[in-house]
């Protein structure tokens, strides 16, 4: 009787599970299968074994794209989290007017990245706000079309991520810091600890969970980025800003190399899983 009820309970899950399996899980498995094929999308496919995976490590395009995505983690995840923590240390306890600030800081989170990208194309333009600002402070010598600069385009792209992600980290950390028991701070004060000690002994450990979450979200955004790169640099100049997402799209839908695209997608997913697992390990509560 109880088992029958537990079977019937599955009926509630069935519609969601069917859509999820049919349009997410099955395609994911199918991608793994395609990654072992040599297929142009039209003619019959042939078995390619590990060739597509080998190509990722030998091809002059594919390997660097993974490296670029990992560099972006610095700008999408590391800097925003560090900035968020610094601001939390600085602002902790400020409550008046925070709602307005929170609304502003969070704004980049809800915007379509395509529009964010177009906005920053303009800001980084020869005549854009960034160069205008540099000229205004007497740094006219370093102005350039940032997204077209061979050495700096990836960094310029990264700072768009910093702009978009810092607010999320800050809002998460400030909310977490509000839950910290103030008596802990008093205890540190009694021991003669200053604000720096207070931050490292109380705040940082207390925000472990929030730091884990913020790092996971922002790291995935860096590794799996597509929209932003597609509209800002489209991988240029000279492939200096290619990312895996961009090449998956290009290989599969412009160059008819379905197997290669699938293999890159699988490797990208594995990289995401490795990073997410590492972050979870590092931030786990020590027993």
């Amino acid at each position: 009787m109880a088992d029958r009820r537990r079977l019937i309970a599955l009926a509630y899950i069935a519609p969601a599970a069917l859509v999820y399996i049919g349009f997410a899980i099955w395609p994911a498995i199918h991608t793994v299968y395609l990654s072992f094929l040599d297929w142009d999308g039209i003619l019959p496919a042939t078995w390619a074994g590990l060739d597509n995976y080998r190509a990722i490590f030998t091809d002059s395009m594919l390997g660097p794209s993974l490296w670029h995505a990992i560099v972006l983690i610095l700008f999408f995840a590391v800097i925003p989290c560090a900035l968020g923590l610094f601001m939390t240390a600085l602002l902790q306890g400020t409550t008046r007017g925070m709602t307005t600030f929170r609304v502003i800081f969070f704004l980049p989170q809800v915007l379509p990245l395509v529009a964010v990208g177009i906005t920053w194309r303009w800001l980084y333009n020869d005549e854009g706000l960034v160069n205008q600002g540099l000229r205004a402070v007497g740094l006219g010598g370093v102005t350039r079309a940032w997204l077209g600069d061979y050495n700096l385009a990836l960094i310029a792209l990264g700072f768009i991520g910093t702009w978009a992600m810092s607010g999320l980290c800050m809002v998460l950390f400030l909310a977490g810091a509000q839950k910290i028991d103030t008596s802990l701070y008093e205890a540190v004060a009694i021991d003669g600890g200053g604000p720096v000690r207070r931050f490292f002994v109380v705040t940082l450990p207390a925000l472990r969970g929030e730091i884990a979450i913020a790092s996971v979200i922002t790291t995935i955004a860096a590794l799996a980025s597509f929209d932003l790169v597609f509209v800002t640099t489209n991988g240029g100049p000279a492939n200096q800003t290619t990312v895996p997402g961009l090449l998956v799209y290009r290989l599969a839908f412009n160059e008819s190399n379905i197997g290669g695209a699938a293999a890159l997608a699988v490797v990208l997913t594995l990289v995401v899983i490795v990073f997410v697992t590492a972050i979870r390990r590092l931030t786990r509560e020590k027993p």
Binding site: P27, A28, T31, L34, F226, P244, I258, L264, A265, V266
Partner: peptide, 12 residues
């Protein structure tokens, strides 16, 4: 944690 890149090719 699955990136869309992983599903988009077979979906098409």
């Amino acid at each position: 944690t699955l990136p869309i890149e992983l599903v988009v090719i077979p979906l098409y």
